[in-house]
């Protein structure tokens, strides 16, 4: 479903955030990305829907090349949902409007249909009673669940999560992770940057460990956590445990 080969990203300030990273995600697979701060986790994730332009390498989503100059990037982004650490809900729109905006204005869905889709998704993330409030009135966990519903409303083939729970108070982490687990169970293809080990063990098919812009290890959760091979991963695990 996702294939990235030798992706290189150099920021305008000269920082080489990705030094040739390759990864592959099969349909319905869940890939978790871990690594210390500044290792390039966000950068590789954001490269997967071209929020960051890459300097070298190739990325394809469902067979379509992102890096090809003729690609209609908006079209591909419709199929790749993204959830951010800081939610990024639209504060001037109600919960319902946040969810229906892209289906109506991008997919040209009929308004009644979009509202139906949104209501179904709100039920799914357990926020049906919040459809007409503004994001500012919601807790962090609720906002993040709305953000997930908003991304799902475009019926994406792939969902990207960049540390979706690290801006949340501990008591709200569970409700967001539950929604993500549910999604994984339904067979959504997902790439998740997270340090939630419980989630990774339960849901991930594979984990990749990144450091200094490179992929250091890639393996099943059991192997990564119980049998780390590289010194860097051992050090990293000892720090987060």
């Amino acid at each position: 479903m996702i294939k990235a080969t030798d992706v290189v990203k150099i920021y305008p300030n000269g920082v080489k955030a990705l030094k040739g990273v390759s990864l592959e995600v099969a349909p319905q697979e869940v890939l978790v990305v871990i690594g210390p701060s500044g290792s390039g986790k966000s950068t590789i994730l954001r490269a997967l829907n071209l929020l960051e332009e890459v300097q070298d390498g190739e990325i394809t989503i469902d067979g379509e090349s992102l890096t090809h100059p003729k690609t209609n990037i908006n079209k591909i982004r419709e199929e790749v949902g993204m959830v951010f650490q800081s939610f990024n809900l639209f504060p001037h729109k109600t919960v319902l409007q946040n969810i229906t905006m892209a289906p109506i204005h991008v997919k040209k869905m009929k308004k009644t249909e979009a509202i139906q889709v949104a209501e179904d998704l709100l039920k799914k993330v357990g926020l049906s009673d919040k459809r007409d409030v503004y994001p500012g009135q919601l807790s962090g966990g609720q906002q993040q669940r709305v953000a997930i519903a908003r991304a799902l409303a475009m019926k994406p083939k792939v969902m990207l999560f960049d540390e979706p729970t690290s801006a949340l108070d501990p008591e709200m982490i569970g409700e967001v992770l539950d929604v993500m687990k549910e999604l994984a169970k339904e067979g959504m293809t997902m790439v998740v940057v997270t340090h939630e080990m419980g989630f990774a063990r339960e849901v991930a098919d594979r984990i990749i460990f990144m450091d200094e812009g490179m992929k250091i290890e890639e393996d099943t959760p059991e192997e990564i956590y119980q049998n780390p091979k590289s010194e860097r991963l051992k050090l990293f695990l000892s720090q987060i445990l």
Partner: peptide, 16 residues
Amino acid sequence: KGQMEAARSLGMSYTV
């Protein structure tokens, strides 16, 4: 700038 990124990640064009 997260607002623009969120909008773009939903497939909206720059103008929209």
